[in-house]
Every structure is written in structure tokens, then in C-alpha cells.
Nucleic acid binder design. Structure first.
Lengths: 228, 228
DNA sequence: ACTTAGCGATAGTATTACTATTATATTTGC
DNA sequence: GCAAATATAATAGTAATACTATCGCTAAGT
């Protein structure tokens, strides 16, 4: 799978950057190091000044790539969802049976992220952790409607849409396919967070995975006839 | 119900404030106005300086009640969950039938919040909006483990625990009662957010409520036998 | 050889999130 | 009714943040 993916570029809304970070070594360094640093010190403590210091570049140079911190987060998380979408499509497109297809999709989305050597400057494992810890901060803002109009969340919404369609194929009678799809994506992040920080309010742990929990949830919800 | 509740004080971890805001007019003004302002301008744009100006008080006076902005958010959201817990217990404690009880609990948790005149300085409708938009920012931090140890999230976790117990009473065989309980609380907030900002990835709207969606989800999940 | 783009360096700004100190107003205890 | 304690206001100050603006160097393209 690795070699096959090499060279596939994840397309990000070009309003999210001033200059494409993939177009230069400095740009890739910004991406590479920002992932390491945000994961290490957290979004709130992360600054362009600190980032510049770490990559031996000037703060002002980073602003030539990203207008501000917020857009860097949108870029990183968009990349993550684009990468995830690519895996999702690749793993499911040849599956005919709707149920098998949906189960595969849930597996891809909810599983523990492992390293992907196809993108040398991006550590997907750490990026996944960043998404778990920081993604909601990218849309829980007063600017969300304006930014949504600009298409900043399009990849994420497209993923939810794909999942919704798979749910519909399994059970066309089910009333809440979009809500269930968005719940799957969001609960995955949440359950991963809970097992690391609030163990008492989740059943997920080293042996029980969010995949098992969500698979069970979806299967039972869709198989059930409308009742009660 | 209103008069009955009058005088019931929501108990908040006293490490969350320097001086109890309920103990003075200024304190209540801080709470009242911060709810209005955070709702209006959002958490990121909210500052103690602006708050002081609005209530005709000095910034430094606010610091006599809350050590910092973050603890104010923890206070407000703790109060909200305490208030919610109170309603939950009140509405369910006398119900014997486990299924009826759980359905009532889901209704309380997921329904649209309406005004509660028992707490004059707190606008519960706006506070609910703040919880939807800002609650996750209170725990998605690098300090979460330390703050969790201090008991800053105890009310929320207790609520999840109550819900988990009700789930267990309905179906003792179900493998993921804690995860399902945390999903219910979190998905409620998320679906409410989606219907206001990302309508394309939810089925909830003016006529379809998160209550209907989540009730259906839980009922079907718990009624189903373990299979497939 | 000339232009241009890319980057680094420096300086500067308004704002934030506080802390510290002093002064004044208010409450309370006697 | 007055002193003492307490609460609040006013002012000043700090380090850090999130930028913006300008300038100069350098290396690459034409």
C-alpha cells in the first residue's frame, strides 16, 4: 500500500495558505515541526515564534506561508481528513456488499492510526493525536459560518457525506443517516480522548477499542426495525 | 417546579473560585454578565477587562473572584452540569421502570433548554449555548490530567455515571454502558452545534430534534441482542 | 549582468492576561 | 457613632502574544 500512495497529493483549499507549504523545504519544515510541537506543548502554547526557533527560521518567514495560527490548524486538520478520506475510498470502493463496505469504513475511521511512510514530512500518528485534542477548536469559533462559506471544512463534510451514503445503502429506511455519520466521526475522537484522560466514563481501553464500540452501535442501530 | 427549586444551591468545587461569586452582588454580576458576553462575543474574544467595563467594575476586582479566565469557564460549565444533574435526578428518581427512567433521562439531557427563573443571575438558555460552543475547550488542554485530579470535572463525570447506571438497568448485558452514556452527552452538544452551523451533516433541524435521534439510537442499541 | 523571489533580521504595535500597590468606599463589630 | 476590617476601584506595570512593516542579503532564473 505504501508505494502505491507515494506521490498522491492531498488537495487543500488554497485560501488556507499564503504559499503552498509543499512547494519548498521551509514549507515542509513548518508542517513537520508544527505537528511535533503542537503535539508536544499543545495548541494554546504553540506560537510561530517558537516554531521559527525550532526550525532555525524567522517568525516572519512562517507568516509567508500561513496568514495566522488558526489557518495552520485548519490546514493540518484538513490534510488529516483528506488523508483519511483517501484511505477510506481506497479501502471501500471495490466492496460491493453495503454492510461489508460500511463495516470496513468504520474500521478505517475508528482504528488507531499507524505510520504512513508515503508522506515524509508528516507524522500521521501525531497528527491524529492533534486532531483528537484540537480539531474542535478549529470550528468552535465565532467565525465558523464565514469560514464554512469559504469552504474551509469541505473535506470533513465530504467524509461525513460518504459515510452517510454507506449508511443509507445498508438501511434506506433509517431516519438519521447524517447524524449517525457525524456521530461516528466525532465519537471516535471523543472516545480516544476519554481513554487517555477520563477513563471512568468510557469502556474503551487497551483491549476494548472505539472500533468495537462504534461497530456494535451502528450495526444494532441499523438492523433494528423502527419500533417503540 | 420553579418555586420548588428556589434556594437550591448548585455546589461547585471551591478551588474553582477565589471568592464565592454567589456571596456578593459583584460576584453575581460577574456571573450574569460573563454569560451574556461569552455568548455574544465568544470565549476567545472575552476578557476580564471587557467584562469589568460592562459591569462598571475594575478588572482587578474580578480577579478577586476568579484566578483566571479558564477557571471562570470551569465554574460556569460546572454550574451548568450541576443544574442539569439536579433536573435529571428530580425528574427520574421516582420512576421505577428502568426503560421509562432512561428515556426520561435522555429527554432531560437532550432537550432544548428553557428558562429557569429559580436562578435570577443565570440565564440557562445562554449558558446552554456556551456549553455547546465552549465546553470542550475546558478539557482539551495540556493541564487536563492535573485539573481532573483536582476534581474540576467531577460533576460532569458523575452525570455520565448516573446515565451509565440507568443504561445498565435497562440492559445489564450491554458491553459499553459508559461509552454510550458519554456519547449521549457529547453528541447532544455536537448535534445542536451542527444544526446551527453545519446543516448538511446532521438530520437535526427545526422539526427533528437531537432527542429523537438519540432516543432512537439508544433504544435500538440496547434492545438488540448481541449478534453478527 | 539584472531582476526577482525567498528568506532572515530587526523593530514596532495593540492586546492579553495577568500582578502589585495604593486609595477609597462600605460594612461590621463594639 | 466610630474604629477596624473588608471590599472594591484606580493606577501602573510586566511578559508574552499575534501579528505588521521594512530592509537587506542571497541565490536563482533570464
Amino acid at each position: 500500500m505504501d508505494k502505491l500512495l507515494q506521490g498522491v497529493k492531498i488537495r487543500i483549499n488554497d485560501k488556507l495558505f499564503v504559499k503552498d507549504p509543499e512547494s519548498s523545504e521551509l514549507g515542509k519544515n513548518i508542517i513537520r515541526m508544527s505537528i511535533l510541537m503542537i503535539n508536544e506543548i499543545g495548541w494554546e502554547n504553540f506560537t510561530f515564534k517558537k516554531l521559527g526557533k525550532q526550525i532555525g527560521s524567522n517568525e516572519s518567514s512562517i507568516y509567508r506561508y500561513f496568514e495566522n495560527k488558526h489557518k495552520l490548524l485548519l490546514y493540518l486538520t484538513s490534510w488529516y481528513w483528506g488523508w483519511m478520506e483517501y484511505h477510506l475510498v481506497l479501502a471501500t470502493h471495490s466492496i460491493g456488499n453495503p454492510k461489508v463496505k460500511l463495516l470496513k469504513a468504520i474500521d478505517i475511521i475508528t482504528r488507531e492510526v499507524i505510520e504512513d511512510t508515503a508522506y515524509l514530512h508528516i507524522n500521521e500518528v501525531l497528527l491524529n493525536k492533534i486532531v483528537i485534542n484540537e480539531y474542535s477548536k478549529s470550528y468552535l469559533t465565532k467565525e465558523v459560518d464565514a469560514e464554512n462559506k469559504e469552504g474551509y471544512f469541505i473535506i470533513y463534510k465530504r467524509m461525513v457525506g460518504r459515510l452517510r451514503d454507506m449508511i443509507k445503502d445498508v438501511n434506506p429506511e433509517y431516519t438519521y443517516p447524517s447524524s449517525l455519520a457525524s456521530t461516528i466521526l466525532e465519537s471516535t475522537l471523543h472516545q480516544h480522548f476519554l481513554k487517555d484522560h477520563f477513563t471512568s466514563i468510557t469502556d474503551c481501553n487497551a483491549t476494548v477499542t472505539p472500533t468495537q464500540y462504534l461497530t456494535h452501535l451502528v450495526v444494532n442501530t441499523l438492523n433494528q426495525n423502527v419500533n417503540e
